[in-house]
Protein backbone atom coordinates (compact mmCIF):
# COMPACT_ATOMS: atom_id res chain seq x y z
CA UNK A 1 0.00 0.00 0.00
CA UNK A 2 2.66 2.35 1.14
CA UNK A 3 4.86 1.43 -1.77
CA UNK A 4 2.21 2.12 -4.40
CA UNK A 5 1.58 5.55 -2.98
CA UNK A 6 5.29 6.32 -3.12
CA UNK A 7 5.46 5.16 -6.71
CA UNK A 8 2.53 7.38 -7.59
CA UNK A 9 4.19 10.33 -5.94
CA UNK A 10 7.37 9.69 -7.89
CA UNK A 11 5.39 9.56 -11.13
CA UNK A 12 3.57 12.77 -10.29
CA UNK A 13 6.76 14.47 -9.12
CA UNK A 14 8.46 13.57 -12.36
CA UNK A 15 5.84 15.36 -14.42
CA UNK A 16 5.75 18.31 -12.11
CA UNK A 17 9.50 18.59 -12.29
CA UNK A 18 9.55 18.35 -16.05
CA UNK A 19 6.98 21.12 -16.30
CA UNK A 20 8.91 23.18 -13.76
CA UNK A 21 12.15 22.81 -15.68
CA UNK A 22 10.47 23.71 -18.94
CA UNK A 23 8.98 26.79 -17.33
CA UNK A 24 12.34 27.85 -15.93
CA UNK A 25 13.99 27.43 -19.32
CA UNK A 26 11.22 29.50 -20.90
CA UNK A 27 11.70 32.13 -18.24
CA UNK A 28 15.42 32.24 -18.88
CA UNK A 29 14.79 32.52 -22.62
CA UNK A 30 12.43 35.44 -22.24
CA UNK A 31 14.80 37.11 -19.79
CA UNK A 32 17.59 36.68 -22.28
CA UNK A 33 15.64 38.12 -25.16
CA UNK A 34 14.33 41.02 -23.13
CA UNK A 35 17.89 41.78 -22.12
CA UNK A 36 18.93 41.61 -25.72
CA UNK A 37 16.07 43.84 -26.76
CA UNK A 38 17.44 46.41 -24.34
CA UNK A 39 20.64 46.59 -26.34
CA UNK A 40 18.78 47.75 -29.40
CA UNK A 41 16.77 50.38 -27.64
CA UNK A 42 18.64 53.59 -26.83
CA UNK A 43 20.14 52.98 -23.44
CA UNK A 44 19.94 56.48 -22.05
CA UNK A 45 17.39 59.10 -22.90
CA UNK A 46 18.73 62.08 -24.72
CA UNK A 47 18.17 65.46 -23.17
CA UNK A 48 16.09 67.94 -25.08
CA UNK A 49 16.77 71.64 -24.99
CA UNK A 50 14.59 74.34 -26.48
CA UNK A 51 16.10 77.55 -27.79
CA UNK A 52 13.77 80.49 -28.38
CA UNK A 53 15.60 83.03 -30.47
CA UNK A 54 14.77 86.61 -31.39
CA UNK A 55 14.00 85.97 -35.03
CA UNK A 56 13.85 83.18 -37.55
CA UNK A 57 15.87 84.95 -40.22
CA UNK A 58 18.93 87.09 -40.34
CA UNK A 59 22.56 86.08 -40.24
CA UNK A 60 22.82 86.91 -36.56
CA UNK A 61 20.16 84.49 -35.42
CA UNK A 62 21.08 81.92 -37.99
CA UNK A 63 24.59 81.97 -36.58
CA UNK A 64 23.17 81.51 -33.09
CA UNK A 65 21.27 78.52 -34.41
CA UNK A 66 24.38 77.14 -36.11
CA UNK A 67 26.32 77.35 -32.85
CA UNK A 68 23.47 75.74 -30.95
CA UNK A 69 23.28 72.90 -33.46
CA UNK A 70 27.01 72.36 -33.21
CA UNK A 71 26.70 72.02 -29.44
CA UNK A 72 23.71 69.72 -29.77
CA UNK A 73 25.69 67.45 -32.04
CA UNK A 74 28.79 67.50 -29.91
CA UNK A 75 26.99 66.82 -26.62
CA UNK A 76 24.46 64.46 -28.16
CA UNK A 77 21.19 66.14 -27.28
CA UNK A 78 18.03 67.11 -29.07
CA UNK A 79 17.66 70.77 -29.90
CA UNK A 80 14.41 72.45 -30.77
CA UNK A 81 14.88 75.90 -32.25
CA UNK A 82 11.96 78.31 -32.19
CA UNK A 83 11.75 81.92 -33.21
CA UNK A 84 9.17 84.46 -34.28
CA UNK A 85 9.14 85.62 -37.87
CA UNK A 86 10.11 89.19 -37.00
CA UNK A 87 12.42 90.74 -34.48
CA UNK A 88 10.99 92.47 -31.42
CA UNK A 89 7.82 90.45 -31.33
CA UNK A 90 7.34 89.76 -27.63
CA UNK A 91 3.83 88.43 -28.13
CA UNK A 92 4.98 85.60 -30.40
CA UNK A 93 7.85 84.85 -28.07
CA UNK A 94 5.51 84.57 -25.11
CA UNK A 95 3.45 82.09 -27.06
CA UNK A 96 6.57 80.12 -27.89
CA UNK A 97 7.64 80.10 -24.24
CA UNK A 98 4.23 78.86 -23.19
CA UNK A 99 4.30 76.20 -25.85
CA UNK A 100 7.76 75.11 -24.72
CA UNK A 101 6.54 74.92 -21.13
CA UNK A 102 3.64 72.73 -22.23
CA UNK A 103 5.92 70.44 -24.22
CA UNK A 104 8.32 70.17 -21.31
CA UNK A 105 12.04 70.42 -21.85
CA UNK A 106 15.11 69.62 -19.86
CA UNK A 107 16.22 73.21 -20.23
CA UNK A 108 15.11 76.36 -21.94
CA UNK A 109 17.29 79.00 -23.56
CA UNK A 110 15.51 82.26 -24.33
CA UNK A 111 16.68 85.36 -26.12
CA UNK A 112 13.91 87.60 -24.82
CA UNK A 113 12.66 90.57 -26.83
CA UNK A 114 11.55 92.32 -23.67
CA UNK A 115 10.92 91.85 -19.99
CA UNK A 116 7.41 90.55 -20.49
CA UNK A 117 8.80 87.47 -22.19
CA UNK A 118 11.19 86.93 -19.34
CA UNK A 119 8.40 87.33 -16.83
CA UNK A 120 6.43 84.66 -18.60
CA UNK A 121 9.40 82.37 -18.83
CA UNK A 122 10.07 82.76 -15.13
CA UNK A 123 6.48 81.86 -14.32
CA UNK A 124 6.92 78.66 -16.27
CA UNK A 125 10.18 78.06 -14.51
CA UNK A 126 8.51 78.32 -11.14
CA UNK A 127 5.94 75.77 -12.19
CA UNK A 128 8.28 73.24 -13.72
CA UNK A 129 11.71 73.79 -12.25
CA UNK A 130 13.10 73.76 -15.76
CA UNK A 131 16.41 75.61 -15.87
CA UNK A 132 16.19 78.76 -17.94
CA UNK A 133 19.10 80.61 -19.49
CA UNK A 134 18.96 83.93 -21.27
CA UNK A 135 20.79 84.63 -24.41
CA UNK A 136 21.82 87.88 -26.02
CA UNK A 137 19.53 90.12 -24.00
CA UNK A 138 20.79 90.73 -20.51
CA UNK A 139 18.17 91.69 -18.00
CA UNK A 140 18.01 91.96 -14.24
CA UNK A 141 16.45 88.63 -13.48
CA UNK A 142 17.77 87.07 -10.31
CA UNK A 143 15.92 83.83 -11.02
CA UNK A 144 17.69 83.19 -14.29
CA UNK A 145 20.31 80.51 -14.09
CA UNK A 146 22.72 82.12 -16.44
CA UNK A 147 23.17 84.84 -19.01
CA UNK A 148 25.12 83.89 -22.08
CA UNK A 149 25.96 86.77 -24.38
CA UNK A 150 27.79 89.97 -24.90
CA UNK A 151 28.85 92.30 -22.16
CA UNK A 152 27.03 95.27 -23.64
CA UNK A 153 28.65 97.81 -21.38
CA UNK A 154 32.06 96.60 -22.50
CA UNK A 155 30.84 96.75 -26.07
CA UNK A 156 29.78 100.36 -25.65
CA UNK A 157 33.16 101.19 -24.18
CA UNK A 158 34.93 99.54 -27.09
CA UNK A 159 32.80 101.51 -29.53
CA UNK A 160 33.62 104.73 -27.69
CA UNK A 161 37.32 103.96 -27.53
CA UNK A 162 37.45 103.05 -31.20
CA UNK A 163 35.72 106.31 -32.04
CA UNK A 164 38.26 108.20 -29.97
CA UNK A 165 41.09 106.44 -31.75
CA UNK A 166 39.58 107.29 -35.14
CA UNK A 167 38.98 110.97 -34.46
CA UNK A 168 42.19 111.42 -32.55
CA UNK A 169 40.56 112.10 -29.17
CA UNK A 170 39.34 115.48 -30.25
CA UNK A 171 36.00 116.71 -31.48
CA UNK A 172 32.27 116.25 -31.30
CA UNK A 173 30.61 112.89 -31.27
CA UNK A 174 26.94 111.94 -31.54
CA UNK A 175 25.11 108.83 -30.47
CA UNK A 176 22.20 107.35 -32.36
CA UNK A 177 20.35 104.25 -31.39
CA UNK A 178 17.02 102.49 -31.27
CA UNK A 179 15.09 100.73 -28.55
CA UNK A 180 15.89 103.29 -25.90
CA UNK A 181 14.35 101.29 -23.12
CA UNK A 182 16.08 98.01 -23.86
CA UNK A 183 18.61 96.92 -21.32
CA UNK A 184 21.22 96.13 -23.94
CA UNK A 185 20.95 99.59 -25.45
CA UNK A 186 21.16 101.23 -22.05
CA UNK A 187 24.31 99.36 -21.20
CA UNK A 188 25.93 100.19 -24.52
CA UNK A 189 25.09 103.81 -24.07
CA UNK A 190 26.52 103.76 -20.59
CA UNK A 191 29.72 102.27 -21.94
CA UNK A 192 30.02 104.97 -24.58
CA UNK A 193 29.19 107.72 -22.09
CA UNK A 194 31.76 106.55 -19.60
CA UNK A 195 34.50 106.67 -22.24
CA UNK A 196 33.41 110.06 -23.56
CA UNK A 197 33.08 111.64 -20.17
CA UNK A 198 36.54 110.48 -19.24
CA UNK A 199 38.16 112.15 -22.23
CA UNK A 200 38.74 115.90 -22.07
CA UNK A 201 38.85 116.81 -25.76
CA UNK A 202 35.80 114.93 -26.80
CA UNK A 203 32.29 116.16 -26.50
CA UNK A 204 29.19 114.07 -26.85
CA UNK A 205 26.93 116.56 -28.45
CA UNK A 206 23.82 114.55 -29.07
CA UNK A 207 22.13 111.31 -28.07
CA UNK A 208 19.19 110.44 -30.28
CA UNK A 209 16.92 107.46 -30.26
CA UNK A 210 14.71 106.16 -33.00
CA UNK A 211 11.23 106.10 -31.60
CA UNK A 212 8.98 103.88 -33.61
CA UNK A 213 10.00 103.60 -37.24
CA UNK A 214 13.52 102.39 -37.69
CA UNK A 215 13.81 104.30 -40.93
CA UNK A 216 13.94 107.43 -38.84
CA UNK A 217 17.58 106.76 -38.11
CA UNK A 218 18.65 108.45 -41.34
CA UNK A 219 16.61 111.53 -40.51
CA UNK A 220 18.13 111.62 -37.07
CA UNK A 221 21.61 111.48 -38.56
CA UNK A 222 20.84 114.29 -40.98
CA UNK A 223 19.40 116.39 -38.19
CA UNK A 224 22.42 115.82 -35.98
CA UNK A 225 24.82 116.72 -38.78
CA UNK A 226 22.84 119.86 -39.55
CA UNK A 227 22.62 120.88 -35.91
CA UNK A 228 26.24 120.17 -35.22
CA UNK A 229 28.19 120.81 -38.42
CA UNK A 230 31.43 120.10 -36.63
CA UNK A 231 30.43 116.60 -35.59
CA UNK A 232 33.33 114.23 -36.16
CA UNK A 233 31.74 110.95 -35.57
CA UNK A 234 28.50 109.12 -35.01
CA UNK A 235 28.27 105.99 -32.92
CA UNK A 236 25.34 103.79 -33.98
CA UNK A 237 24.20 101.51 -31.18
CA UNK A 238 22.75 98.78 -33.33
CA UNK A 239 23.08 97.33 -36.81
CA UNK A 240 19.93 98.69 -38.40
CA UNK A 241 20.61 102.19 -37.14
CA UNK A 242 24.19 101.94 -38.36
CA UNK A 243 23.04 100.90 -41.83
CA UNK A 244 20.68 103.83 -42.11
CA UNK A 245 23.09 106.33 -40.67
CA UNK A 246 25.75 105.15 -43.11
CA UNK A 247 23.30 105.35 -46.00
CA UNK A 248 22.41 108.92 -45.05
CA UNK A 249 26.07 109.94 -44.74
CA UNK A 250 26.84 108.40 -48.11
CA UNK A 251 23.85 110.23 -49.58
CA UNK A 252 25.15 113.48 -48.12
CA UNK A 253 28.57 112.70 -49.56
CA UNK A 254 30.13 112.96 -46.15
CA UNK A 255 31.77 109.54 -46.10
CA UNK A 256 35.15 109.77 -44.44
CA UNK A 257 34.32 113.13 -43.01
CA UNK A 258 31.79 111.96 -40.50
CA UNK A 259 33.12 108.79 -39.05
CA UNK A 260 30.75 106.00 -38.08
CA UNK A 261 31.35 103.28 -35.53
CA UNK A 262 28.70 100.57 -35.74
CA UNK A 263 27.63 97.55 -33.77
CA UNK A 264 27.21 94.09 -35.30
CA UNK A 265 28.03 92.91 -38.77
CA UNK A 266 25.14 92.42 -41.16
CA UNK A 267 26.27 92.41 -44.82
CA UNK A 268 25.20 96.05 -45.29
CA UNK A 269 27.41 97.20 -42.46
CA UNK A 270 30.29 95.22 -43.91
CA UNK A 271 29.78 96.77 -47.32
CA UNK A 272 29.85 100.23 -45.82
CA UNK A 273 32.89 99.22 -43.86
CA UNK A 274 34.75 98.22 -46.99
CA UNK A 275 33.53 101.30 -48.82
CA UNK A 276 34.82 103.47 -45.99
CA UNK A 277 31.50 104.91 -44.89
CA UNK A 278 31.63 103.01 -41.64
CA UNK A 279 35.05 103.10 -40.04
CA UNK A 280 34.66 100.32 -37.55
CA UNK A 281 32.14 97.94 -36.09
CA UNK A 282 32.07 96.09 -32.84
CA UNK A 283 30.97 92.55 -33.46
CA UNK A 284 29.47 90.06 -31.11
CA UNK A 285 29.87 86.33 -31.27
CA UNK A 286 26.46 84.78 -31.94
CA UNK A 287 27.99 81.41 -32.76
CA UNK A 288 29.50 81.19 -29.29
CA UNK A 289 26.20 82.34 -27.79
CA UNK A 290 24.33 79.51 -29.44
CA UNK A 291 27.03 76.99 -28.66
CA UNK A 292 27.60 77.98 -25.06
CA UNK A 293 23.91 78.61 -24.42
CA UNK A 294 23.06 75.03 -25.30
CA UNK A 295 26.16 73.64 -23.59
CA UNK A 296 25.36 75.34 -20.30
CA UNK A 297 21.66 74.55 -20.61
CA UNK A 298 22.62 70.89 -20.74
CA UNK A 299 24.92 71.25 -17.74
CA UNK A 300 22.23 73.10 -15.81
CA UNK A 301 19.73 70.34 -16.55
CA UNK A 302 22.24 67.84 -15.23
CA UNK A 303 22.40 69.80 -12.00
CA UNK A 304 25.90 71.10 -12.52
CA UNK A 305 26.68 74.60 -11.41
CA UNK A 306 27.20 77.03 -14.26
CA UNK A 307 28.52 80.59 -14.26
CA UNK A 308 25.87 83.18 -13.62
CA UNK A 309 27.12 85.31 -16.45
CA UNK A 310 29.09 84.28 -19.45
CA UNK A 311 30.67 86.88 -21.68
CA UNK A 312 31.00 85.61 -25.23
CA UNK A 313 33.28 88.50 -26.13
CA UNK A 314 33.34 91.28 -28.67
CA UNK A 315 35.79 92.29 -31.30
CA UNK A 316 36.60 95.58 -32.98
CA UNK A 317 36.59 95.23 -36.75
CA UNK A 318 37.80 97.88 -39.14
CA UNK A 319 38.65 97.87 -42.80
CA UNK A 320 42.18 96.88 -41.99
CA UNK A 321 41.37 93.59 -40.33
CA UNK A 322 37.98 92.71 -41.79
CA UNK A 323 39.44 90.26 -44.32
CA UNK A 324 41.96 88.68 -42.03
CA UNK A 325 41.34 84.99 -42.19
CA UNK A 326 40.51 84.67 -38.49
CA UNK A 327 37.85 87.39 -38.85
CA UNK A 328 36.35 86.24 -42.10
CA UNK A 329 34.53 83.32 -40.51
CA UNK A 330 33.16 85.59 -37.79
CA UNK A 331 31.99 88.25 -40.21
CA UNK A 332 30.77 85.91 -42.90
CA UNK A 333 29.55 82.83 -41.07
CA UNK A 334 27.71 81.34 -44.02
CA UNK A 335 29.15 79.95 -47.18
CA UNK A 336 26.86 81.24 -49.89
Amino acid sequence: MCRTRAEGAVEMGKWKQLVLYLMLILLALTAFYSCEARFDAPVDKKKTVALIAGMKHGDYWRTVKLGAQMAAREFDLNLNFYAPDYENDPQSQIELVEQAARDGYDALVVAPSDEQVMQKALEQDNKQSMPILTLDEEGEYPMIRSYVGTDNYEMGKKAGEKMLAIIGKLGQVALIGSGEKQANTKRREQGVLDVMNGTAGVELVATRYVQSDKRQAGDLAREVIRSYPGVEGIIALDASTATRVAAEIERLGLQGKVKVVAIDSPPEVLEYLQEGVIQATIIQNPFSMGYLGVKYALEASEGKSIPKRLDTGTKVIDRENMFWSENQKLLFPFVK
Binding site: T63, G67, M70, R73, E74, D76, N285, F287, S288, Y291, T312, G313, S325, E326, K329, L330, P333
Partner: peptide, 25 residues
Protein backbone atom coordinates in the same frame (compact mmCIF):
# COMPACT_ATOMS: atom_id res chain seq x y z
CA UNK B 1 27.64 60.38 -34.02
CA UNK B 2 30.13 63.06 -33.10
CA UNK B 3 32.99 62.56 -35.48
CA UNK B 4 33.73 65.00 -38.26
CA UNK B 5 36.21 65.87 -40.96
CA UNK B 6 38.35 68.96 -41.30
CA UNK B 7 40.89 70.10 -43.84
CA UNK B 8 44.07 72.05 -43.35
CA UNK B 9 46.57 73.29 -45.85
CA UNK B 10 50.30 72.68 -46.02
CA UNK B 11 51.13 75.00 -43.16
CA UNK B 12 48.19 74.20 -40.96
CA UNK B 13 45.70 76.91 -41.91
CA UNK B 14 42.15 75.73 -41.70
CA UNK B 15 40.58 75.13 -45.09
CA UNK B 16 37.43 73.69 -43.63
CA UNK B 17 36.37 72.99 -40.10
CA UNK B 18 32.80 72.58 -38.92
CA UNK B 19 33.63 74.44 -35.73
CA UNK B 20 35.85 77.08 -37.22
CA UNK B 21 34.29 79.87 -35.15
CA UNK B 22 34.91 77.99 -31.91
CA UNK B 23 38.53 77.55 -32.83
CA UNK B 24 38.99 81.22 -33.69
CA UNK B 25 37.46 82.41 -30.44
Amino acid sequence: KKGYVYIIDLVGNIVYHPQQQLIYV
